[in-house]
Simulated assay, not measured.
Amino acid sequence: MNKWKVAFLLLFTLVIVAIASATYLITRPIAETPTPTASKLPDGSHLEVQTTSKDFENMANRLIESSMKTSKIPVKMFVGEDVSLRSTLTVFEMELPITMTFEPTIEDGNLLLKQKSVEVGMLDIPPNTALKLLKDSVDLPKWMVIQPKEEQIYFNLTEMDLPLGEKLKGRVQAKEFNLKENRIILEVIIPAE
């Protein structure tokens, strides 16, 4: 057999293996991610803060950005009539924009985002696969839990340290998240000690 035939067969085999591997990684069964338990909030002063969706969006993006300093892939939150997350995924050296839209609810003071739709470039992929790709690609903060099988993202707000000053960190929980009326109420707890 001449060397060109051998080279072609070798290259053809490598392409088939690469496609099969990528297909397996994308379509393999998704393990269930348990929902974290809400943390017990510390004793201290309670301050109720009413904000707008735009202010919440700015605060959330600052907290996500500061928590993801090691991640190369940016994740941005947009809050309007619903909540959407936008990022980019690198697939076969191509940057694909990804936009996921969610319906927000409050669960034990934490924010639960149930997925409504997903757009990954021109691809038509299932929502749980898009969440799985995001979970595997991005090093998210520990208080942001992606649950692909449940098609949701759980923001464990009660676990998050909220910087209030140079050495002071508070805790936060959601009280109301009404996007139709542009009314978001958060309770900030300033620890007694």
Rank of each mutant, 00 (worst) to 15 (best):
M1W: 11
N2R: 15
K3W: 14
A7I: 10
F12C: 14
T13S: 15
L14W: 10
V17F: 14
Y24H: 12
L25D: 08
I26P: 12
T33S: 00
P34I: 06
T35S: 12
T37P: 14
T37V: 15
A38K: 12
K40Q: 15
L41S: 06
D43I: 06
S45Y: 15
T51G: 01
T51Y: 07
N58F: 04
A60N: 10
L63W: 00
P74I: 01
V75K: 05
M77F: 12
E81H: 06
L89H: 00
V91R: 04
M94C: 08
T99S: 01
M100V: 05
T101G: 12
F102S: 03
P104S: 04
I106C: 08
L112F: 02
L113R: 03
E119R: 02
L123F: 14
N128E: 11
N128Q: 15
A130T: 09
L131I: 07
L134W: 08
D136C: 01
S137G: 12
V138E: 11
V145I: 08
P148H: 05
I153Y: 06
Y154F: 12
E159Y: 05
K167L: 15
K169Q: 05
N182D: 05
R183M: 07
I189M: 04
I190F: 10
P191L: 12
A192Y: 00
A192I: 07
